[in-house]
């Protein structure tokens, strides 16, 4: 591919779609999942004594699902501020891996664009974006921001709504929307495996990832289990791909 010729490259490259609207469309599964989990978080936070404004502010500047659940638990338990901040850092340090994995796809963008893209990176937006980018794809800044902004906006609105409505909306679970993100991870995993040159190393890596994360979850917090599983699974996958090639 001729990287020096952007027109040629754009015409020849598969999705990601180019613009902001494409990004918004690619984020639809994330939006469905965030609606369900955001509402649930708002209810939990309100029940734990966190105010509506605090929930909205948390979703605006922290924007991290599992970390926010952990945080309201610690606030409710009266844990000191410094201990909460250290804990949240440990919960969120896995984003290092997502940020690093995205970096080869954004080399052509300006640093401030990469700051904006990184600041709204989550498990789910990373999953969608990296699957669309495939191997060596170049991310459009508008496209990435489209994914990020609509996901973040959904999270702010749904968590705040959950906190306002409180227990009035107890059973959204019956609708099955809480399963949207699990289904999304399944679909993206299948698409990722299909995109590899040969599927055996990727399937093996996925099995290692799933196995390690569950074993590790028994001894370390879930977010650390993801780090351990990712390091091992990606290494196994790379070694196998090299030996097959």
């Amino acid at each position: 591919m001729d990287i020096m010729n952007p027109v040629l490259f754009e015409a020849g490259s598969k999705p990601p779609g180019r613009g902001y609207a494409h990004g918004v469309r690619d984020a639809v599964p994330v939006v469905m999942g965030y609606l369900a989990i955001g509402l649930a978080f708002g209810v939990v936070a309100k029940t734990a004594g966190v105010t509506v404004i605090e929930v909205a502010f948390m979703s605006l500047i922290l924007y991290a699902g599992s970390a926010q659940f952990v945080m309201v638990g610690l606030i409710a338990a009266g844990v000191p501020a410094s201990a909460i901040i250290v804990t949240i850092f440990l919960v969120n340090v896995r984003h290092l891996l997502y940020s690093a994995a995205i970096s080869p796809h954004v080399r052509h963008l300006r640093p401030w664009q990469n700051v904006l893209i990184g600041s709204e990176l989550t498990d789910e937006t990373f999953a969608v974006a990296s699957s669309r980018l495939g191997q060596g794809g170049r991310a459009g800044a508008g496209w990435f921001l489209g994914i990020n902004n609509v996901s973040h906006a959904t999270w702010i609105v749904s968590t705040t709504m959950g906190a306002v409505l409180g227990s009035a909306i107890t059973d959204i679970r019956t609708l099955g929307f809480d399963f949207a993100l699990a289904a999304m991870f399944a679909a993206l995993l299948i698409l990722q495996i299909e995109s590899r040159p040969t599927w055996m190393p990727a399937v093996t890596a996925a099995a290692v990832g799933g196995g390690v994360v569950l074993c590790a979850s028994l001894v370390v917090p879930p977010s650390w289990a993801i780090i351990a599983a990712t390091l091992m699974a990606a290494t196994v996958g790379m070694v196998l791909e090299e030996s097959v090639a």
């Binding site: 690093a100 495996i193 890596a205 290692v208 390690v212 990712t230 699974a233």
Partner: peptide
């Protein structure tokens, strides 16, 4: 390979 690894986890 990080996406495959993260998604499976």
């Amino acid at each position: 390979l990080v996406p495959v690894a993260v998604l499976s986890s």
